[in-house]
Structure formats: C-alpha cells, structure tokens
Design a protein around this nucleic acid. Sequence first.
DNA 1: CCTGTCACG
DNA 2: GACGTACGTGACAGGG
Length: 932
Amino acid sequence: MGFGKGHHLHLIDGSAFIFRAYHALPPLTRKSDGLPIGAVSGFCNMLHRYVEANTGADAPTHVAVIFDKGSHTFRNDMYDQYKANREEMPEDLRPQIPLTRRATEAFNIACKELEGYEADDIIATLAVQAREAGGRVTIISSDKDLMQLVGGGVEMLDAMKNTRIDREGVFEKFGVYPEHVVDVQALAGDSVDNVPGAPGIGIKTAALLINEYGSLEELLDRAEEIKQPKRRQTLIDHREQIELSKKLVTLDDKTPIDFTLDDLEVKEPDPEVLMPFLTEMEFRTLTKRLADQLGVEAPVIEATVQAPGDAPEEPETVPFDKATYTRVGDRDALQGWIEKINERGYVAVDTETTGLNEMIADLVGISLCVEAGEACYIPLTHRAESGEGLFGSDELAEGQMPLDEAIALLKPVLEDPAVLKIGQNMKYDAKIFARYGIDVAPIDDTMLISYAQHAGLHNHSMDSLSERYLGHTPIPIKPLLGSGKSAITFDKVKIEDAVAYAAEDADITLRLWQTLKPRLHVAGTTKVYERMERPLVPVLAQMERHGIKVDRDTLSRMSNAFAQKMAGLEAEIHELAGETFNVGSPKQLGEILFDKMGLEGGKKGKTGAYATGADVLEDLATTHDLPARVLDWRQLSKLKSTYTDSLQEHINPDTGRVHTSYSIAGANTGRLASTDPNLQNIPVRTEEGRRIREAFVAEPGNVLVSLDYSQIELRILAHIAGIDALKEAFRDGQDIHAATASEMFNVPLDEMTPDVRRQAKAINFGVIYGISGFGLARNLRIPRAEAQGFIDRYFERFPGIRDYMDATKSFAKEHLYVETLFGRKIHTPEIGAKGPRAGFAQRAAINAPIQGTAADIIRRAMIRMPDAIEGKPAKMLLQVHDELLFEVAEDGVDDLIATAREVMEGAADPAVKLDVPLIVDAGRGANWAEAH
DNA sequence: CCTGTCACG
DNA sequence: GACGTACGTGACAGGG
C-alpha cells in the first residue's frame, strides 16, 4: 500500500544539522589519523537523539534526510549573485560532508540529494507529494525559506527549540500566511542568500503591502497608487529585481526525483552496518550506547595515543608498496576514481610534466591518492618506445586515455568547492592545470603546511618531509630521467616506471597531509597558514602566468655595449699586469695583484686563494689603476652575464614576456624569493645598472606603476620596540635618518649635513640587522672604536632598542623561535650555539621579527589586491619585498594608485593596530626605470 | 658540486 | 679574553 492517509513523513534538513553540529562542537579529530570529525560526531548524536525521540505514538512512518548537492543550482543561472556572499566552507568541515551521508545511511535512514537542486527544493517536492496523497508532513528545520510549505498537514519543527510551526506560527513570523510568504520574501529580500528584494523594504513593510493589495503581482501592477512617494518609486524602479527575487525564493516542488515516498519508509538501524561505521569514526561513547540499545556486543576501539607535541608520529602502519598503485588507462577506470574522490571530499594530486618550467612544460600524466597506499597514475602523453633511431618516437604509447577526455572528466572534481585538492607545492600544479583550462580550488599544500609550522627548522621539499615524517625515502627521479646531456623528459619514461614514481608522490603527499595538517593547530600557526600562505598560491600563480614584458632589443644593445667596454678594460688590465690572464678568475687575479705586483694587504682565505672581493679591490684602487679597472670590468661582467644576456633567454617565445617563479617557502622570514629568473635583484643602485630596468616595459597604451612601502622595517622596529621618538618622527612625516642623526648628535635638522645623515642611516639599518661595532665600522669605513661609540650613543638615546634586542634574544633562547606581529614563527635552533655561530643566530633572531612582519604585511596586501582591483584595467606583475609593480591602462593609473595604495597602507588592519602609519610611495612610467 | 662574487631589499 | 661578525635572498663563473 502506498503513502497516504494515516502516514506521517519526516523531512530532515541535512545541511542545517551539519552546520549546527559543526558550530556546537570543538574541532575534534580522529585519534588515529587526525581526520577532523567534530561535525560528524555532532551529526550522529543529533540523529541518535532524533531516533530516540521519535519512537512513541506520534512516530513517523516515513523519514528522509535531505542534502544540498553541488554549489551551482538553477538559481545561479537566473542570478549569478545568488548566495555569492556566502563564506567559504570551513576547511576542516569539508572532508566531513561525505561522512555525514555515510552516517545517515548507517542509521538506516534514507539519504537523498539531487544535483543542481537545493535541499529545500527536494523537501518542497516531497512535502507537496505527501500532502496530495493525504498524509502528514513534519519538516525538521528552522529555515524560514521552508515556511512557504506549511499548511494542509505540513508543519515545521525546530529541533533545537522543540517548537512546532503551523500556519499561525508562520503568520507570527512573516505577518502573512504561508501562501504569501514568497511575496513578502521577494520584497524584503534576504541578505543571507543575497536575494536583492526591494531596497528599503523589510518584512514588516512587505507584509503590510501584501495584506493591503492581496498579492505581489497586484501590488506591482498598482504600485502607482501607493501614497508614500519613496516606497512608490522603489517598487516602480525595482520591479524586475523584485520579480527575480520572487523566483529565487520560490521553492521548486517539481524536482525530478528518482524515488517515491514509499522508498522512505522508516527502518530499524542494522547493527551490522551501524557499528562498523561508528567504530571507524572512533566514537567511543556513542558506539557503546547504541550497542546497548540494539542489544549487541560493543566493538573494541583501539586506544591509540597521539604522539605528543612535535615528536614524529608512529611509523606508518600501511607500508609503501608500488604494487598497490594502479594505472588508469580508460574512461571507466577514471570515473571510478572520481567517485571515490567525491565520496571522500579530498584527494592528493600530482602532475607529471615535460619540465620544471610550468609556463613551458606540457602535461604528461596525473596521479591521485585518496587513502594511504591507495593511489593511481593516469598516463596521458607518454611516447611509445622507439624501435630504432636516437630520438624517441613521436607516437603516443598504448593504453592511455585521450588527454582531452581526462581533462574533461577531472575538471568538475578539481574545481568542485566541496572537494579539497591536496598537493606538494600546489602552485606548480595549479599553473599547469590553468593552461588546460582548469582552475583548481580549493587547495591545501603540504609544503606550506610544513613551512607555516617549521620555518627555520628544515626545508620543506617532499623528499625531506617524507624522510622526516614518514620515514620513507621517495623513489628518486634521477634514474628515470638520467642526467646531463642524455637526460630525457618524463614523457619518454616507461609508463610502468612512471606509475611507481608518480603514484608514490601522490601517496606521500596524502600521508604528509594527514600527518602535518593536524599539527598546525599544535604549533599555533593555523591562521598563518590559512591567511598568509595558502591564499597567496592563486595570487602568485596569476602574477607569474601574466609575466612582464621585456624588450629584447634594448637588452641586446646593452649587451653589445658592455662587451665592447669589457674588451677595452681587459686590454688595459693585461697591459698593466704585463701579461694576459683571466680577469674573471679571482685566483689568477689574486696572484697577479699580491704575488707578481707585490701589493700589500693580501689575505688568503680558507681555500688558500687571495681574497679579491670588492672591498679589498676598493682599498687597493686608491693607489693603483689595475684593481680599479677590475672593479669596472666586474660590474660590467655581472650586468652582462646575469642581466642583459640571460634575461633574453628567459623571454617566453609564446608570450614575449618574462615569467619568474616565486617560492613561498623559500625564505625563513616569510619573504618571497624569486627564481628563474630572479626579478627581485634587477640593478638599481648604479646608473649603469639601473638602465637595465628600461628594458622592462608596459604594453602599448599601458604604463608600469610601482608602489613601495616607505621605510617599512624601521616603522615596524619603532612599533615593536616601542620607541616613542621614532614613532613621533614617523607620525610627523619627518626624514627618519635625519631625525635619528639630530637626536644622536644633537644637530638641529636645518644644520644637518649629508654625511652625518648617512652615518645615522647606516646605524638605523644596522639596528635592523642586529648591529655590531665591527659590522658598522666596515660599512662606514671608520675605526671600530668610533663605530662602537656611535652604537653606544644610539642605545643611550633609544634605550628601547637595546631592551627589544635583549628581550628577543631571551625569547628565542626560551622558545627556540621568534615571532612576527602576525604570529608567523621563525625557528632559531642555533640560538644556544657556542662560538661564532651564536652571534649569527642572535642577529638573525633580532632581524627575523622585523623582516618577517614586513613580509607578512605585503603578503596581506597581495592577497587582498585581486579583489580590490577586480574589473580595473590593471594587473599586478611583480613583488620586490617592499614594492609591488603593476601594468595599468593609461587612463586607469590614478584610480589604480589610489586603490592599491589604500590596500597596502591598510594591510596590517584589522589584525594589528600599528602605532606608526604605513606610507606607500608611487611612481609611473613607460618602463620600470621611470616607474621606480 | 662548492666557493667567491655581486645584484637586490 | 678571543673569536669572527652586520639580516634575508639567487645567479653566475671558475675550478676542483
């Protein structure tokens, strides 16, 4: 007999249960592996309580838990801003979503969802069907959007407050009966779902109007009759928006569900299914309680003990074994993996490519891992082994699915907001995927998770993390690719070998994630990771992909000019030396200078060679021509080889631009590092070098705009050390070095000489670096005693600086790390060292919070920048520690400068309230030399 | 592969 | 009292 009179259907709003459970409980994790499990635990308890409470006379005959599915629904097609202001799902909730489905099934309760529809629509469909069949319906939810369904046997139940809502209850809430709820909602809008409604009209006014005119349509048709002029105009002006709002809030009660009410009949839980699930989740109390109630033996849950603090975990229970890795060669196999991934809610991903430069390298294959030891490799463009000839075959190897097909299948998962993609250095993989039209999100990155908790302790490469935390040495790539001239690219690797290598990388990545992610919390750097490391990945990927235009002809002309000058200098040098030798060889040069010419001051280093650094040559240059020529030659040689020659090699043939790569976890202090090429050390200090920046240009119709923080590290020092005199000088906008000099030497500002100012400037910088008399003496080329005198006077005038330095050193000694204002931790394991290393470690500890805080601030600015400049004709191209470089359409320059400056100057807010203002200077021009 | 040198903040 | 010493990076050339 089908559902009908006398039957009672309960419809549970699954998402509401999940969020309530998530927010009600602390972030519990599963003991054995650290999987976040709090929401699942709360969800199960709520289900259990629900079952217990519904066994009496009024028990339902049918029940289902309804979930949302997919983030894109028909409402997004109508209105792209629908629910656009929703906050992203919390990171630790995401992997729990699939588990709540399993929990529902484990309790033997029907669990329903439908792609492209919200849970509310399915609830509406079922409620209407049940009502028409003559049955009763209780919707267990407090969502006001569902109130339009109430009436004719349909009621709502707020499980938290245990209150039932009938027609009168709806009237209390909305001022209208259920049939007019959508009219009121259409007018009032909904800020939670981002439904616009009519501006200035809330629920009260909306109900008043609907009650007066009878319906929304009537109201809109007769809007002219409304007496209040403002209200009248609003309704006339926003008619379309109101009608759209009504469509958005109206539930679809005709969703194409593939089951009937009869499928939802209440069933007893099956202990054979429920117990194993609860055991797997390691819910001790609930397992025991339900075992008692169901009259079965409670299964034993191993009491695993989590390793304390930072001690390495117990060795992995699942050994690494390449035999467990599978090769995915066709559509069906890949679809199987995608199902597994969707079920899990997370997946470790790794790409194999033809090279290390992600702007050029092509995709060769993809590996996936969902569980320790369960990984696969999808070969895509491996070449067939060549029968003869020296060059590999151009033919594709057998047994690979077409690249396009794999991309099309994987795109929805890799872009699914409900599936977390885990990688080691995800920026690389994300850039590769971006070139194939996939925008990978959301992500986690094991390299950054490690960096956020262990900067300064060890590096964060997969090899060292695997050794350290998994006790496993990954398969080296060298034997597969060879080295030197005979090296091959990954597409020439035998697929069999590639499976073992690539799948293992994904396997390791997943295990590292399981091990390291829960420890972020222990280290207290979760916020650092989530707000300052991970969000930077897409921002940098975008900047790197965009690149900066570099004019080859300019560089080439400079190279030629440098070569000519160098040849001239070389001839002179040989002439002066009386013989020819390699000017570029410090060893040969040393012998010429100190042995042959017999100059004074030759010091041999630990290798036995004379030191010939710039400082040595500069001393000699006062009395001899040869070292002076060598200094000139060296400068030109540096400019030519490092810049004018090699930058040309880095111009990408496809884009005509230079694409650097930033390493996020490269510098211990939180700074970025730029490689291949390094665009953070383009010359600027000498006129000759600065001209290289003329080759960095904007596209026609655009200009380059440079914004840089003025004296950011000194400002941070003033704040952290609490130096009132410095803070005031900054607040008054004074020349800080002159102000320092005035304070130190009792010279009025208007009598300041450039030389006194220069000395104060050197001291200011010295302080940031952890000043020493020797270092300052060398920098200023003054006697050491004099330098020490300066430092003593400085500390006398600014005693807070010495206090800061002492406090930082003792903090480092006690904790073995120091911290930035934003909570970034930089470990200082050498702080207790004896001998010369002690000094190094102490100065690094003093410098790290200052340099690191500045790095944090510009990171925060960069993370906010894409949203701030969205829609503007501007692109962020480069970061140089305290500078951001943009390429901007000519008519958008002023706007960009205003916007970007606001973001940069406000980047510390609201996390940290600085006592000194942050000031950003701006410049613009056709090239980087002009803009800087 | 290591060292010295030098470019940047 | 002696010991070395400014902080953080990356690229290139020479030389084993």
